[in-house]
Nucleic acid binder design. Structure first.
Lengths: 138, 138
DNA sequence: TTGCTCCTCACGTCACGTGAGGTGGC
DNA sequence: TTGCTCCTCACGTCACGTGAGGTGGC
């Protein structure tokens, strides 16, 4: 099948598929007459696998390594477990970081509700961002 | 002061400062003799402002717009409030997304604890990623 | 002269998205 | 011929980090 058909079947953009081909995750056949890519049902399975792995937090590089291993006929499972551990730790840190940031943002918005708008001075650019306290009224 | 001194004082890398200069967030003077950048204490304040704004979730583009407004002598506060609303909503969505992903990752790891490693087949690349059920032992 | 700092390109990161410019299929 | 799809560059996104190759200061 052609790019657009595959794209429809698995519900991704043709650009995404082209990207995966570009970086070697997918290797479709090529029609020698017109250079059109020919995707087999194996390619479709491979693509679905890629998307599933992505949704579990693997990077495209991770997935490349996993597929390489499997293509060699060896079990990718040990690698999968190792990488996932790493990604899980990273995700935890990121999540905590995001939660902190989010709280800070919320708190800022709350504080700002009782603060007026002010003109910038040579000392302060924006009192909302720079901290609490009043501003313009000397 | 020179790049490295400023970098030390506000605790960022010289590369970060150079980046901000490159995109116009900072506009230090330049020593005509040696092309060295000369940062004033106003530049330092500006940099501290940038970092504070960043920590509140503003993008560098946001900050550029805010600084432009303030440089014109006008109050950046209304803009600041508007942008923050937008960023807050975005952050909320991202946070929820990350939380969902994180849960999925955790659940996957749990399931995998009772699943063995298996060789890839023409039908399956990695049963861990592809779903539940057993694999190799037909 | 040595070792440190400064400088400017220019490319890499991550996972695509987006033109531009050209071709095949019906 | 028209309108749609396909193709390949090649650059943009975000906030820097990282060489490479060269220069100033002490």
């Amino acid at each position: 099948m052609k790019v657009s058909e595959l794209a429809q079947r698995v519900d991704v953009s043709t650009d995404t598929i082209r990207h995966y081909v570009r970086i070697g995750l997918l290797e479709p056949g090529i029609d020698p007459d017109n250079q059109y890519k020919q995707f087999s049902s194996q390619d479709e399975k491979r693509l679905r696998f890629i998307l599933k792995a992505k949704s579990l937090g693997f990077s495209l590089q991770d997935i490349q390594a996993i597929l390489d291993q499997a293509d060699k006929g060896q079990s990718p499972c040990p690698q999968v477990r190792t990488i996932m551990q790493k990604r899980l730790l990273e995700a935890e840190k990121q999540l905590q970081q995001m939660q902190q940031n989010y709280q800070q943002m919320q708190q800022a918005v709350q504080r700002w509700q009782t603060q007026p708008d002010c003109e910038p001075t040579s000392e302060h650019i924006c009192h909302l961002i720079e901290g609490r306290g009043d501003c313009c009224h000397e």
